[in-house]
């Protein structure tokens, strides 16, 4: 058991190191100069000397005037102290602050969408596998939903429920006339703004989970152990219970992968609804070639994926005895 987790931990550390290095490299391969971009966005109508002084100040602030190897070492040095650098796009605000301001919105949007769609999709798929009429109606709907791009569904929802029916607002995470505060008014406003992006994510993922579960259940119900139980007259309740439990295994992996990409996962949805989450932040960071913000967000994604995978490794050990056998090096 200890050896198993030791080996896993080593793999994850190595992956983290390589991924972080690539993460550092990629923004620097982008054509263009972030400081130049920043200066031009600020409106550069001062004298050339003043502009030179300002750009020197920025190069110095972001450490971009140092040799590239030094920048790489700085990156790791800062990382180990929990310092991700300063955002070019957010005018020198620390990257951690910029990310932390966006993270609650993304999490509040994605965690309920992923977990609820997972739960509802699996329950519904399992139900569909045993009811013919439900299967016949659910399957096409599920396929259409899962094949729908998030943003397209988002636009349709925004048009129907936001623009036409005026049931929900369809831009920003809260009304721009409000200040974030712990008041009932702000909370209801937040929920109203949250509704449409949530729905667009929920519906698409729901379709995917439901179809996956339905297919898995049908497969498991046809498995040898199911047939054996039926041949020995076991009631359907027991057969279905076993089939459901075993069909859940791949779904758990799927859930983990979803949770891993949680941070960047809703990129397009957040753009469609101008929802101030990490996805929108990432979009802006790319637009303004913000090395540090990009790095920070990607690092966030990397750590998220790795952590989620590690959790699944642990969950698998609990739910699937076959992994436990592999861990002891037992022979099948």
């Amino acid at each position: 058991m200890r050896r198993y987790f030791g080996r896993k931990l080593l793999t994850y550390t190595l992956t983290l190191f390589i991924a972080a290095t690539i993460d550092w490299l990629i923004p620097r391969f982008m054509p263009g100069d972030p400081v130049y971009g920043l200066m031009s966005r600020m409106g550069n109508n001062s004298s050339p000397e003043a502009a030179k002084a300002l750009s020197d100040y920025y190069y110095n602030l972001f450490g971009l005037n140092q040799p590239i190897w030094q920048q790489y070492l700085n990156f790791w040095g800062g990382l180990l102290h929990g310092d991700l650098g300063r955002s070019v796009f957010e005018h020198g605000q620390p990257v951690t602050d910029a990310i932390m301001a966006a993270v609650p919105y993304t999490l509040a949007l994605l965690i309920p969408a992923i977990l609820l769609s997972w739960w509802a999709g699996n329950s519904f798929g399992a139900l569909a596998a045993r009811r013919k009429w439900l299967d016949n109606t659910m399957l096409p709907v599920g396929y259409i939903l899962t094949a729908t791009p998030y943003m397209w569904l988002g636009i349709v929802l925004a048009f129907v429920f936001g623009f036409t029916l005026k049931m929900f607002p369809f831009a920003n995470s809260y009304g721009l006339n409000l200040e974030p505060s712990f008041t009932w008014l702000f909370f209801t406003d937040l929920v109203a703004h949250w509704m449409l992006p949530f729905l667009s994510l929920f519906l698409v993922m729901f379709g995917g989970w439901a179809i996956g579960m339905r297919n898995m259940i049908i497969y498991e119900l046809d498995a040898d152990y199911s047939r054996y139980l039926e041949a020995l007259g076991a009631p359907q309740r027991l057969v279905r219970k076993y089939a459901f439990r075993n069909a859940m295994l791949p779904q758990i992996t799927g859930l983990a992968l979803q949770l891993g990409v949680i941070v960047a996962g809703s990129l397009v949805t957040e753009i469609v609804f101008s929802y101030q989450g990490v996805g929108l932040l990432l979009f802006n960071a790319i637009k303004s070639e913000d090395y540090f913000l990009l790095q920070g967000i990607f690092l966030f994604v990397i750590v998220g994926v790795l952590a989620a995978n590690f959790l699944v490794d642990i969950a698998y050990v609990i739910v699937d005895p076959r992994t436990r056998v592999g861990m002891r090096g037992g022979t099948a």
Binding site: A223, D224, Y225, R227, Y228, L229, Y242, R245, N246, L249, V319, D320, P321, R322
Partner: peptide
């Protein structure tokens, strides 16, 4: 299929 007749989990 006695080899796979028992629930693996």
């Amino acid at each position: 299929y006695a080899m796979s007749a028992m629930n693996p989990t």
